[in-house]
Design a binder for these strands. Structure first.
Lengths: 340, 340
DNA sequence: GTGAAAGCGCTAACAA
DNA sequence: TTGTTAGCGCTTTCAC
């Protein structure tokens, strides 16, 4: 009989126990963090485990312990570089805390199914960074006692926690900066009109303008897409009174606006028109754009997310939280600076 | 005694069975895809489930069925927009096939621990898109009978499958294009020198140059980072004989090179120097860069990845596969075009 | 510190 | 088609 290499004989804790001449529970204890095992037992178990190639089955562990160690993360799209950055930081931070990320990408359609799937996999918490988000989904998690954090968005009527930057203040900062820059026809290009980020940025912007006795000169909607933003920009400039400054609801769209302004309309930035974005994604500091933008503090936002999540995973009684982190205007060359 | 709303009473299939006056297995069958249940039973079970808020426990199901429905995905970084795009497509495609993605982000350090973690969670397959990757990790999965696909990289000596674009041919295309463009001092900026992508792109490039009786004029190393690429570019131009064309090992670095060339060195692209990248990430078509680049067919690469993965999940006997998809030069304005 | 025993919630034979 | 019976691999009392 020739020896054949078969894949995966699935070695269990019982196999290890047998080989180490101890009970199966001793093996379990050896691989459980705060368990009490004698040094001698531990050594024998470890050696047997090594020899057999034993690896604890996390699924079985989760089943009995009731803790899966999995956090569900839901994102709509990754075109806007803000989100990949968030995924990367979030994922690393959760890994460092001993959790794993079950990632779901989805646009509107199948959100229900996705949340259902997450719950079936017994996630201990959920982070949602999807733009369109019915409050019902967060509710569904809440009903199951699973903490949810809405990242970079919130729903006032929902039981879900939220972590955002101070979009209201961010919008205000931009208004003041552009007013200080001596602009007279300041326009706005919106993202999704019904998203909380857009609503807050826009109303903070209007409030800031009002404080300076100004109103928004004209307005377009880009729906957080580059093609949408480009179209909106063309329209604004088709007017008899084109803007001399545009606040674009996020950087991702602002790049498209800058491209249209420079390459299609042959205008100078910021001489002919100032552009300001929101997010301060890495590309904003690329020389080709050098975009003045409001920085969303991704690092602190991630920290807050994880803190809220872990706190609520550990004691279920915690109240809904809404973390709002300070926004900061990063001045670059895409917008005229105030003359001092 | 006041009625209190407690979270999560954990309703099991047994609870549903009791409420529906059927056996627990009837409940299981109702929720198992190809099971035989009478219409009557199904209805009663579904109704009871609905009322109780029952949701099958996927972990328990996985434990007994031996199929977790989870694919582990390992990525090093998401700065380079090529990877977010891949994650998005891969994730959506796997979801569509009924799998879930367990995402791990890691640079070199803790790769061992990550792979270990994946295996403990009983992933059915693994996709690795990490640049630095010891062949040992793939081996470890293979030993456990878990199919692995190296995405956008390969290791000749490893049992792991791989999916790449034809980097060799891609490099050759660039060499010919630049030679046709009449350039005389053609340089190269490398990524990680020991990565398979860099090796193939570079040697294909050299081969292409050789075919035209040329050699690489000068060479720098950017290590796939923008700061590295910028430094390399500065060095190339500090020479008495600066290049009149540069092939940069990927787009992500090429943007940084273009920024240095234009904004620090005040040179015109492509009049003074032509720039060509690799990947054709979305930003390459942004007007500010309009970068000539070699397109990696992300869609087909994802399809191949999933096909290989599923095939090997279903029958364990399948041989190692290496899919190499055609690369295509996308001509834009960052490099002089051949005079016809 | 250790082993025996009882499940976690579910699927998968097996009879009926 | 249905219910009964074993477990999947593990953690966790509970006596010892």
């Amino acid at each position: 009989m020739t020896e054949q290499r078969m894949a995966k004989p699935t070695v269990t804790s019982a196999d290890v126990a047998r080989a180490a001449h101890v009970s199966q529970s001793a093996v379990s204890r050896t691989f459980t963090h705060g368990a009490s095992v004698s040094e001698d037992t531990r050594r024998r178990v470890m050696q047997a485990a090594e020899e057999l190639g034993y690896r604890p089955n996390a699924l079985a562990r989760s089943l009995i312990s009731g803790k899966s160690g999995i956090i569900g993360v839901l994102v709509a799209y990754l075109d806007n570089q803000f989100y990949p950055g968030v995924i990367e930081m979030l994922s690393k931070a959760l890994q460092a805390k001993g959790y794993r990320v079950l990632l779901f990408m989805t646009d509107q359609g199948d959100q229900d199914a996705v949340v259902e799937d997450m719950l079936q996999y017994q996630v201990e918490g959920v982070v949602m960074a999807s733009a369109h988000l019915s409050s019902q989904l967060a509710q569904q998690c809440a009903d199951n006692g699973i903490p949810v954090v809405l990242f970079n968005r919130y729903i006032a009527t929902s039981p879900a926690n939220s972590v955002t930057s101070d979009n209201l203040e961010g919008g205000r900062l931009v208004a003041n900066f552009l007013a200080d820059g001596g602009h007279e026809r300041i326009s706005y290009i919106a993202g999704f009109e019904d998203s909380s980020t857009n609503r807050d940025r826009e109303s903070g912007f209007y409030k800031g303008l009002a404080e300076r006795g100004m109103v928004c000169h004209s307005r377009g909607v880009g729906a957080y897409t580059q093609s949408g933003a480009a179209a909106a920009a063309r329209e604004l400039f088709a007017s008899r009174t084109p803007p001399d400054a545009i606040f674009v609801a996020n950087d991702h769209m602002a790049f498209a606006v800058m491209d249209v302004v420079r390459h299609e309309l042959k205008l100078q930035v910021p001489e002919d028109v100032s552009i300001v974005g929101y997010d301060d994604v890495p590309q904003s500091s690329w020389q080709a754009y050098d975009l003045t933008s409001v920085r969303q503090p991704a690092g602190p936002m991630i920290e807050a997310t994880i803190e809220i999540l872990l706190e609520q995973i550990n004691r279920k009684d915690v109240k809904r939280k809404a973390a709002v982190l300070p926004a900061e205007l990063i001045v670059r060359s895409s917008a005229k600076k105030p003359k001092v």
